[in-house]
Design a protein around this nucleic acid. Structure first.
Lengths: 97, 97
DNA sequence: TATAAAATTCGATAATTCTAGAATTATAGT
DNA sequence: ACTATAATTCTAGAATTATCGAATTTTATA
């Protein structure tokens, strides 16, 4: 994960609504949750939520699987791990050096 | 560190310039670096840099110490640790549960 | 006290992001 | 075919953010 990718991903998590969505999805686990589930849980208008989900998917924070009419959103744990890995390296570089 | 604080901090790191600044400061270590040093290193116009630094300081990612004419910027390692801690909890919640 | 240096603030513009209602698309069931 | 459901796309206004030159503030030094 390079610099620009990290910045883009952090920017996506750096929005209150999107952070809420991501937290909800992580709680939901590997099976994820449908857009409708998220909408009912967080009370975000559908078009607004759709906008946020599209952004999150674009940078790889979540993936979306379509099952007939329903779209399931699943958090990309690996992506977050890499993000945390990057931050940890940044964080410890000064302490170690 | 609560939800809104986390979102605000991630949003600040989610900008390419500010992420570069933070990475540079972490490399610089606990003594930090002056605004001028950052400016020369990253080549960001002074007024733009000042704007970004003010934002980073506001959310607690860095602190600024004034020594006569020079302002030293120091990364708040503890703040980043807390940020990482929050993300790690989010990340592992689904895997563990 | 004039000059230079370090950094911020001001001011103005461009660009992006957020928000959400209305319309649309896709699919399932009757 | 008709109706309902799930979700997106369209559209447009509001708000925020990014950018940076010019002016200003603060402090050191000749």
């Amino acid at each position: 994960m390079d610099h620009e990718n990290v910045a883009a991903s952090l920017a996506e998590l750096g929005n209150s609504h999107r952070l809420s969505v991501f937290r909800f999805l992580v709680k939901a686990g590997h099976e994820g949750a449908s857009v409708g589930d998220i909408q009912r849980e967080l009370g975000i208008p559908a078009s607004t939520l759709s906008h946020h989900l599209a952004r999150m998917a674009k940078v790889g924070l979540i993936r979306q699987e379509k099952h007939s009419r329903t779209i399931i959103c699943i958090p990309e744990y690996e992506h977050l791990e890499q993000l945390i890995g990057f931050l940890r390296e940044e964080c410890c570089a000064g302490v170690a050096g």
